[in-house]
């Protein structure tokens, strides 16, 4: 059977068709179309006028458009870095605790994982009600200050993602051989040394995986943002994805501009993800 498959490329093609077709229809075509539309002006699908790089120029010419985009970028970057660090440190800690031998670890793993199963908008709305309920005691609300929004968003994303990353870390930690740790112990290493010199280098693949996921998630965050703050107050908590969305749907005639922002957004996230992967992978033990 294996031989026939290798001999007959027709089979290979036949079985690749569904996936390749889905990839082209669902990703390649929209992606190319998106790049094309970023060079156009359009209100409706009927009249699409090619205008060259005008949309991109609008992004760098200064003024409100540029300021808002930059503000969104810095807020997004701040959020992505904070969430990446916090999620990974906490998820790793929880994973270390839950790979120790005591009862109920499976129960706790399930409990920590569960928030991940809920949708972002739903979570955002529920948490907004909870947070506003508490803040109203102090005559405040979530959208009154940018810092409230930042902390609120962090709480929700942490609550949602720590469980997921924890599962990846648990799998990584279980792969670390007890023999190595025991050998380190016999050599006189204390538990801190074992953690940093033995365990962490060995779970480095999990760490690079998790940082990749959390960093890109942080940058792409949209659901929780639109559900919780909607960018209030005064665009202070508006992240890049929401900024693009508002430009696209909020003002007719600015859709091409929004598309150009989306292309720039893609380049930024892509670049950051590649750099991050290179850095963490270089630290992985062979």
């Amino acid at each position: 059977m294996g031989k026939t498959l290798k001999k007959n490329p027709l089979y290979l093609l036949l079985f690749m068709i569904p996936t390749v077709a889905a990839f082209i229809i669902g990703f390649v075509y929209p992606f190319i179309m998106g790049i094309y539309l970023s060079l156009c002006k359009f209100k409706t699908p009927k009249h699409i006028d090619f205008i060259g790089f005008k949309n991109y120029l609008k992004l760098v010419e200064g003024g409100t458009n540029t300021d808002r985009f930059l503000q969104s970028f810095w807020f997004t970057a701040l959020f992505a870095v904070l969430s990446t660090v916090l999620i990974n440190v906490l998820a790793f800690t929880v994973a270390v605790l839950l790979t120790k031998n005591f009862g109920g670890t499976n129960l706790f793993r399930t409990i920590f994982f569960m928030p991940n199963l809920l949708g972002g908008v739903l979570l955002g709305s529920i948490w907004t009600i909870l947070i506003n309920g508490i803040l109203s005691v102090f005559k405040e609300s979530l959208t009154n200050k940018g810092i409230y929004g930042l902390i609120g968003l962090l709480i929700v994303l942490l609550w949602q993602q720590i469980g997921y990353m924890m599962i990846i870390y648990v799998a990584g930690l279980q792969g670390v051989s007890e023999d190595l740790k025991e050998a380190a112990k016999i050599d006189g290493a204390d538990s801190k040394q074992i953690l940093f010199k033995v365990t962490i280098p060995l779970v480095m693949p999990s760490i690079s995986m998790c940082t990749f996921l959390t960093l890109t998630n942080g940058f792409k965050l949209f659901d929780q943002n639109i559900a919780m703050t909607g960018g209030l107050p005064n665009h202070e908590t508006e992240m890049l994805a929401l900024n693009i969305y508002n430009t696209f749907y909020g003002t007719r005639g600015q859709m091409g501009f929004a598309q150009a922002k989306a292309v720039v957004f893609f380049l930024i996230v892509g670049l950051i993800a590649i750099v991050q992967l290179k850095i963490t992978q270089s630290k992985e033990a062979d």
């Binding site: 959208t143 009154n144 909607g230 960018g231 209030l232 107050p233 005064n234 665009h235 508002n246 430009t247 749907y249 909020g250 003002t251 007719r252």
Partner: peptide, 19 residues
């Protein structure tokens, strides 16, 4: 009113005024 963004901006400003 010229656009949905106009309305959103006004809502944002009113929200600032409320504080």
């Amino acid at each position: 009113q010229p656009s949905e963004n106009y309305q959103l901006e006004l809502q944002g400003a009113l929200q600032g005024y409320a504080i």
